[in-house]
């Protein structure tokens, strides 16, 4: 088990290096010269040459990469091209804002998804199954920016139930700031709820059709111990999907954060793209990708802890 975890950890390293290469390459893949973006169009050739040296663009590409990687490893992504504030500070604030939403959306999305999936499977083919399956299918298939707009219309425009956008002032009491989160969280949890609900239902139905579940009844186990066996067997792929979904949530949804004007990582990415703020873009993508890889690493290890057949 320990060996398995170590091996997975080793495998994560090349993945992360690959990501860093792509992210580094962004500067050079993006149309236009990075220096041209920094300098006014009428800048003199001498000034441009100076700038090249200042940013290290005169060095060979691989030296540039290692310098950049060395700085990135300690969180030094330089200054934002747009407003000259440290990229790291912007990123920490934005990620923090997104994590609040992601945690709540994951908690409720996964929670409802698991409950709906289990109930659907328990009432397979009967009306609760049809109702809950309709809900989870709607969760994955409704465009969530559309849901966001409908929710805003309903709860903020037609009725004055909840604030339409923003995350409230820091001076507001906690429960009032919580109100700002309700609409984005409800919108964000739809997809995790839908995909988890559908997978849980499918997994549970698959497992209860297997012989060993009948054998569990044959050895006299009652409903709850049998359910424990079913859940433990159904868990590994569900956990894997949860890892992916939580990764997506951490990335922040550009659409949702734009609709609700939520200053999170999705919003930051969006702004960075429009402002051609390459350092912010690089830092955001690299940090999010690292989270994603580590999250999936954790899921792999948990899966292997549950199902010994995965430990190979």
């Amino acid at each position: 088990m320990l060996l398995f975890s170590l091996r997975r950890l080793m495998l994560a390293i090349p993945t992360l290096l690959g990501v860093s290469l792509v992210v580094f390459g962004l500067v050079h893949i993006a149309p236009g010269n990075p220096i041209d973006m920094l300098m006014p169009p009428e800048a003199s050739p001498e000034a441009i040459a100076q700038m090249k040296i200042a940013y290290g663009f005169d060095k060979p590409l691989y030296i540039q990469y290692f310098l950049w990687l060395g700085h990135a490893a300690v969180g030094q992504f330089g200054l934002s091209v747009f407003n000259a504030t440290p990229v790291w500070d912007q990123l920490v604030v934005a990620l923090g804002n997104t994590v609040q939403l992601a945690l709540l959306a994951a908690f409720f999305g996964f929670g409802f998804g698991i409950v709906l999936g289990l109930l659907s499977a328990a009432y397979y083919g009967k009306w609760p199954d049809k109702l809950f399956s309709a809900i989870t299918t709607a969760g994955v298939s409704l465009p969530h920016y559309w849901c966001a707009i409908v929710l805003v219309m309903l709860c903020a425009v037609l009725h004055d139930w909840l604030p339409a956008q923003g995350m409230g002032d820091d001076s507001l009491p906690f429960y009032e700031r919580l109100q700002y989160m309700i609409l984005p969280v409800v919108t964000l949890m739809l997809i995790p709820m839908g995909v988890i609900g559908r997978l849980v239902r499918a997994r549970v139905l698959d497992i209860i059709s297997q012989d060993f579940v009948g054998a569990l009844s044959a050895k006299g186990l009652t409903r709850w111990p049998v359910l424990r066996h079913i859940i433990k067997n159904a868990a590994p792929p569900v956990l894997a999907l949860m890892g992916l979904q939580f990764g997506y949530l951490l990335g922040g949804s550009i659409l949702i954060e734009t609709v609700f004007n939520w200053p999170g990582s999705g919003n930051l990415l969006n702004l960075a793209i429009f402002r051609r703020d390459i350092p912010v873009l690089q830092a955001t993508i690299l940090v999010l990708a690292t989270f994603f890889v580590l999250l999936n690493l954790a899921v792999d290890v948990i899966q292997a802890a549950i199902d010994p057949r995965i430990r190979r």
Binding site: Q210, D211, F212, G214, A215, L216, S217, A218, K219, G220, L221, T222, H229, K232, N233, I306, D307, P308, R309
Partner: peptide
């Protein structure tokens, strides 16, 4: 509930394919 007490107690069963009849993750 009474029947469940008998199963695996007074009456028990073995199966054709033990791989399929045993829970793979316990």
């Amino acid at each position: 509930s009474q029947l469940a007490k008998l199963r695996g107690g007074a009456v028990s069963m073995i199966f054709q394919e033990p791989m399929a009849a045993l829970d793979p993750v316990y």
